[in-house]
């Protein structure tokens, strides 16, 4: 009896193995199609992330080979590095502004644009709001608007109106740096998610609205919450992923405007800290620990957003 069972199991296993091999042969062409992408992706995206996690447990200065030091980098980050804690605080501030605030702004603006009836006007408005995001280093203009002489826009007009008698040193005063940078960051925060929202809104099934009117949807806000948003959940998720990535990666704009390092570390984010240790001090192990933490926080945020999006329309 038992022997029979073993025999059957063995035969089953052999059959399955044969099926898998057959499947593999059939899939050969598929693997050829994905190979170029997957090889490059593995080498330049996957391996780096895994390496980064590995290096974060070492002391590595590029000259000597990495030396394992356990959790020491993480311990130092949280208990011995005041600048890192400042960076976390700043990143949190900017991430909240570009993250939730920027995300909802993008969604609301996309929705408002969608409410316009003329397609040409819709296209123009989409361009108007998306242009700052795609115009490369156009954020340099803010340096001119807030320049520290009387020829800058902000100072010029404040002085003309008599609000101040001498030019304000916008980017040299920690008090002004953050508010200005928040404005700049919001200006550029439409992002890829915005396009996804515009597209999602345009493609909500029209018959759902008709059904909604029958069921007594009274105004455009109810329509938004009960019909529009639930049917574009996938786009909302995509927008969230893109927003999380870009809001935690904020550094370039800040460094270009406020300098690097900035006065009183007012514009120092976690990525600034990472760039500092990675490309200036060459403490690669420490920098990798920062990168790993950043990555983990992004994944956590992603899970949180997934959880929150389930509540939409309820």
């Amino acid at each position: 009896m038992e022997k029979g069972l073993v025999h059957v199991l063995r035969a089953d296993l052999a059959r399955r193995r044969k099926a898998t091999i057959k499947q593999m042969k059939k899939s050969k062409i598929s693997f050829l199609f994905i190979a170029p992408y997957c090889i490059i992706f593995t080498v330049f995206y996957l391996v780096p992330v895994v390496t980064s996690i590995g290096l974060s447990f070492t002391y590595y200065n590029v000259l000597e080979s990495p030396r394992f030091i356990g959790w020491q980098n993480y311990i130092n980050l949280f208990f011995a590095d005041d600048v890192f804690l400042t960076a976390v605080k700043n990143t949190f501030l900017f991430a909240v502004v570009t993250g939730p605030v920027g995300y909802f702004m993008a969604l609301i603006i996309a929705w408002m644009i969608n409410e316009i009836k003329k397609p040409v006007l819709r296209a123009i408005m989409t361009l108007v709001f998306y242009a700052p995001t795609i115009s490369g280093q156009a954020y340099f203009i803010w340096k001119f608007i807030f320049s520290s002489d009387s020829y800058g826009f902000a100072n010029g007009w404040l002085m003309k109106l008599g609000a101040t008698y001498s030019p304000i040193l916008w980017f040299e005063d920690a008090k002004y740096i953050q508010p200005i940078l928040i404005v700049v960051v919001l200006w550029m925060s439409m992002g890829t998610g915005f396009l996804s929202f515009i597209a999602g809104l345009q493609n909500v099934d029209r018959s759902l609205y008709e059904a909604g009117y029958m069921d007594g949807i009274k105004n455009r806000f109810q329509e938004l919450w009960y019909i529009t948003l639930p049917s574009m959940k996938p786009q909302l998720m995509f927008g969230a992923v893109m927003t999380i990535t870009s809001s935690f990666a904020i550094h370039d704009q800040l460094a270009a405007l406020a300098g690097f390092p900035s006065v009183g570390y007012a514009a120092h984010t976690v990525v600034s800290h990472l760039v500092d240790y990675g490309t200036i001090r060459f403490e690669m192990g420490y920098a990798s620990a920062i990168a790993t933490l950043l990555f983990m926080v992004m994944i956590l945020c992603n899970k949180l957003v997934q959880f929150l999006l389930r509540k939409v329309g309820q």
């Binding site: 992706f41 391996v47 780096p48 980064s52 290096l55 893109m242 990666a249 990675g278 950043l294």
Partner: peptide, 24 residues
Amino acid sequence: LIFGIIVTALMFSGQVTAIPNYLI
């Protein structure tokens, strides 16, 4: 599985991978 990994990779920002990329 492959697609799942790639969706996660949407979140790999350039700075996170910059150092190992340089080494590679």
